[in-house]
């Protein structure tokens, strides 16, 4: 993606709260949270070649960390929520990754799915600890030490919270850009394309895959923490396998071969779902058909379609 397009998109996102209806600005909040999540997921999926069907586990970790901090521990700082989510996401990802990255393809996918469902079941069954199916409340967090409890929730979300989420997304994007363009990122791609050759070159495949998994889990946890405050409640469906499927869908939709593809996928997914849901009661059928069409006719996603038309420009992105 050219810098010009990126600049225009960033500019539009910056002025959106001033121009767009409040509802569309509110829809940007889950978009930005999912954008962080899929940036991380794509490190594993697009750059390392490992498809996780259990990353909702880490979204759940982030969301519930925020809920526990605000409702039970009296911690209302969003900065602390994000840090704690990231730390807990990494802590839990470390042993999960150690077990999962020893496998590839369907075995890796199934293992991640299994761990995700273990956590989902934990959330559902340990009622007194997690609230079970009723979930847990997330109180309005403070932003950079500012207690914004006095302004209406919608104003809070479309104003300060919106720009805070945007800042987190930009920061997450910059860090991920550095990661994938670093020697570490190059090693991941080598492992994805030819693990045998990578090993022969002295690259520790398991260690690199483990690192990519943990980083992606941290991103998912941070995104999960951002998802909680707009809803004001977190529940076990955030950790359910279909939620893992949704983020894989977003990544496929946008295109995992491009850095910005998953972010575009998240955007299209959120706004397409919103539109289709409002028009057709059986919107899941439409989404299923779209997924099938993407896989059959555009396996490189929406960004892949752009790349076919503008190969030189996209290649530079």
């Amino acid at each position: 993606m050219s810098r010009l397009v990126l600049g225009v998109v960033t500019g539009v996102i910056l002025v959106l709260p001033l121009l767009a209806p409040a509802y569309h600005v509110l829809l940007m909040l889950p978009f930005m949270a999912y954008a962080v999540i899929v940036l991380g997921l794509n490190l594993l999926f697009g750059y390392t070649g490992l498809v996780s069907f259990g990353h909702a586990l880490f979204i759940g970790i982030g969301a519930y960390t925020g809920a526990v901090l605000t409702t039970h521990l009296g911690v209302r700082s969003l900065e602390l929520m994000l840090l704690a989510s990231a730390a807990l996401g990494a802590l839990i990802a470390a042993p999960v990754a150690a077990l999962c990255v020893r496998y590839v393809k369907i075995y890796f996918g199934m293992l991640t799915l299994a761990f995700g469902m273990v956590f989902y079941t934990f959330l559902l069954k340990f009622y007194r600890l997690t609230g079970g199916d009723e979930g847990m409340q997330v109180l309005r967090p403070t932003l950079l030490g500012q207690d914004l409890g006095g302004i209406p929730k919608t104003d809070y979300l479309v104003g300060p919270y919106y720009y805070y989420s945007l800042a987190v997304l930009v920061l997450a994007g910059l860090v991920m850009w550095r990661i994938v363009h670093s020697p570490f990122g190059l090693c991941l791609r080598t492992i994805r394309d030819n693990p045998t050759k990578a090993e022969a070159l002295g690259i520790s495949i398991v260690r690199y895959r483990w690192s990519a998994f943990v980083i992606s889990a941290v991103y998912a946890a941070v995104g999960g923490a951002l998802l909680g405050p707009p809803t004001g409640n977190v529940d076990p469906t955030l950790a359910y396998w279909t939620h893992s499927g949704n983020i894989v869908f977003m990544t496929l939709l946008g295109g995992f071969a491009n850095f910005f593809g998953p972010v575009l996928g998240a955007f299209v997914f959120i706004f397409l779902q919103d539109t289709v849901m409002a028009v057709v009661p059986y919107w899941r059928l439409i989404f299923g058909a779209i997924l099938a069409l993407v896989v059959i006719f555009a396996p490189t996603g929406l960004m892949g379609l752009v790349a076919r038309r503008r190969p030189a420009e996209v290649a530079r992105a």
Binding site: P30, G135, T154, G232, V234, M277
Partner: peptide
């Protein structure tokens, strides 16, 4: 104007759509 009740996150979004949009 009919919207779907599903999980808490999505239903809150549909609720806001009904009110704001």
């Amino acid at each position: 104007i009919v919207e779907e009740e599903s999980n808490p996150k999505d239903t809150v979004e549909r609720y806001r759509r009904l009110i704001l949009q």
